[in-house]
Simulated scan of single mutants.
Amino acid sequence: MDNLTSALARTRYISLTTFRKDGTPVATPVWVAGESGVLYVWTNAESWKVKRIRRDGRVTVTPCDARGGPRKGAPTIEGRATVLDEDGLRFVRKLLARKYTWQFWLTDLPATLVRRGRRPHVGIKIEISST
């Protein structure tokens, strides 16, 4: 993993910015994990960010706090996002569970119980653009 991707993967949150059809940026704070030079996030399959990524995979990422506020002096990096299939989701869940431990399970388990085992989530793969 290159230094930049590795640094992003170590942060607690990134602001993931996707783009509407008219080009308007929409930023959302998300948990992030990294593996082999790629960033991964996990989100609800019906979220608008997933719909925007399916239409246009162009994204930017910035280290941020839990509310999405960028960290002081943090760079904004361009990348390409792809929505993953079921196998990809399992892989992303393992990465996030390893990084966030009990917090991940505290978030995932109640939703799974309420939905009777169904997990309406997707994994998103983010490849950082070379500069």
Rank of each mutant, 00 (worst) to 15 (best):
D2A: 10
L4Y: 03
T5Y: 06
T5S: 03
S6V: 12
L8S: 02
L8K: 03
A9N: 07
A9M: 01
A9H: 05
R10E: 11
T11L: 10
R12K: 14
I14D: 01
S15I: 08
S15W: 12
L16F: 11
T18N: 04
R20V: 07
R20H: 02
R20G: 05
R20Q: 07
K21A: 06
K21M: 09
D22K: 03
G23E: 05
P25Q: 02
P25Y: 01
V26P: 07
V26S: 08
A27W: 06
V30P: 02
V30G: 09
W31Q: 00
V32I: 05
G34C: 02
G34A: 01
E35C: 06
E35M: 04
S36C: 08
S36W: 07
G37M: 00
W42Y: 10
W42T: 03
W42M: 06
T43R: 05
A45G: 05
A45S: 13
E46G: 11
S47V: 10
W48K: 01
W48G: 15
K49E: 05
K49G: 10
V50E: 09
V50D: 03
K51C: 11
K51E: 14
I53W: 07
R54D: 12
R55E: 15
R55T: 13
D56F: 09
R58L: 08
V59K: 01
C64D: 06
D65E: 15
D65C: 12
D65I: 05
A66Q: 15
R67A: 15
G68H: 08
G69T: 15
P70D: 15
P75K: 07
T76I: 12
T76M: 08
E78D: 14
G79Q: 06
A81G: 06
A81W: 10
L84F: 12
L84K: 06
E86K: 13
D87Y: 03
G88W: 03
L89I: 15
L89N: 08
L89P: 04
R90I: 13
F91Y: 13
F91M: 03
V92A: 07
R93H: 15
R93Q: 15
K94M: 07
K94S: 11
L95P: 00
L96K: 12
L96V: 10
A97I: 11
A97P: 02
R98L: 10
K99Y: 03
Y100F: 08
T101E: 14
T101S: 12
F104L: 04
F104A: 06
W105E: 04
W105H: 05
L106P: 00
T107E: 15
D108H: 14
L109E: 01
T112K: 06
T112M: 11
T112S: 11
V114D: 01
V114G: 09
R116Q: 00
G117Y: 00
G117H: 04
R118G: 07
H121C: 08
H121L: 13
H121T: 13
H121V: 09
V122M: 00
V122R: 00
V122G: 00
G123F: 03
G123A: 01
G123Q: 04
I124W: 04
K125D: 03
I126M: 04
I126N: 04
E127G: 04
I128C: 00
I128Q: 01
S129F: 07
S129K: 02
S129I: 03
S129R: 02
S130C: 12
S130M: 14
T131M: 08
T131W: 10
